[in-house]
Amino acid sequence: MKKLYRSRKDSKLFGLCGGLAELLNVDSTLLRVVFLVTAFFTEGTLIPIYFIACLVIPKEPAFEPFYDPAYGYSSGARSTGRSPAYPRPQQESPLASTPDPQPNIDEMMRDVEKKALQKEIEQLRAKLAQLEKGDKEL
């Protein structure tokens, strides 16, 4: 079930009619016209109700995380029925059992980090040796 929010993308004043139109799945312009006609015939009693509703109803979140049990949370997809940006696996591919010719990215990253740490240790040792020489000369 969808929640009622004030719309971020279809907002003329506060986004209330846009959010209500999205919830009811109707055109927001039609809903605005109905609101104005109703406000005219009720002698303006609908206008304070509109402002109170704007204070009570929260603004639409910037994004809603989409949870797919196969992939986990995705921060970009919204829960409006659209599928996530990545395809869902249908079945095991016969090519999936063959090993990937490219090396594992995790092993490559560990190797790069190890080399960077070794280089940093060598630089620190050189600085320490310079400081020790400076202390001996004093």
Rank of each mutant, 00 (worst) to 15 (best):
97 S>T: 15
26 V>W: 04
111 D>A: 15
129 A>T: 08
91 Q>E: 10
6 R>Q: 11
54 C>E: 05
79 S>A: 14
53 A>T: 05
18 G>Y: 01
85 A>L: 14
41 F>A: 12
34 V>F: 07
51 F>M: 07
97 S>H: 12
85 A>F: 11
72 G>S: 03
40 F>E: 11
121 I>C: 09
138 L>S: 03
79 S>P: 00
108 M>D: 12
116 A>F: 05
80 T>K: 10
28 S>Q: 14
2 K>L: 05
39 A>V: 05
68 D>G: 03
94 P>E: 11
105 I>L: 14
68 D>Q: 09
33 V>L: 15
4 L>S: 04
132 E>M: 06
49 I>Q: 10
91 Q>M: 14
122 E>F: 04
36 L>G: 06
5 Y>Q: 01
17 C>H: 07
29 T>C: 12
138 L>K: 11
136 K>P: 00
35 F>N: 00
57 I>F: 08
100 D>A: 11
21 A>G: 02
135 D>Q: 12
120 E>N: 06
107 E>Y: 10
63 F>Q: 12
77 A>W: 01
120 E>T: 09
92 E>A: 15
14 F>G: 08
6 R>F: 05
28 S>R: 15
134 G>P: 00
56 V>Y: 07
71 Y>V: 05
119 K>C: 03
6 R>S: 02
15 G>P: 00
53 A>W: 02
25 N>Q: 12
75 S>M: 12
88 R>K: 15
136 K>Y: 04
89 P>A: 10
35 F>K: 01
49 I>M: 14
51 F>V: 05
123 Q>T: 06
33 V>G: 02
78 R>G: 01
87 P>G: 03
52 I>L: 14
64 E>L: 10
45 T>S: 10
61 P>S: 09
99 P>C: 00
73 Y>N: 05
71 Y>C: 04
124 L>A: 06
45 T>I: 15
31 L>D: 03
8 R>T: 13
89 P>D: 08
48 P>D: 07
66 F>W: 04
102 Q>I: 09
86 Y>K: 13
93 S>A: 09
18 G>H: 03
111 D>C: 14
39 A>C: 12
78 R>I: 04
136 K>S: 11
85 A>K: 08
15 G>E: 00
97 S>D: 09
35 F>T: 00
60 E>M: 11
39 A>Q: 06
98 T>K: 13
44 G>I: 00
51 F>D: 06
2 K>V: 00
23 L>C: 04
74 S>H: 11
80 T>V: 04
86 Y>V: 09
56 V>R: 05
136 K>A: 13
53 A>C: 12
137 E>S: 08
92 E>G: 12
44 G>D: 02
125 R>N: 15
89 P>L: 07
105 I>P: 04
74 S>W: 04
88 R>C: 09
112 V>P: 01
24 L>Q: 11
30 L>R: 14
52 I>C: 07
100 D>G: 02
102 Q>C: 12
11 S>N: 15
75 S>N: 07
115 K>C: 08
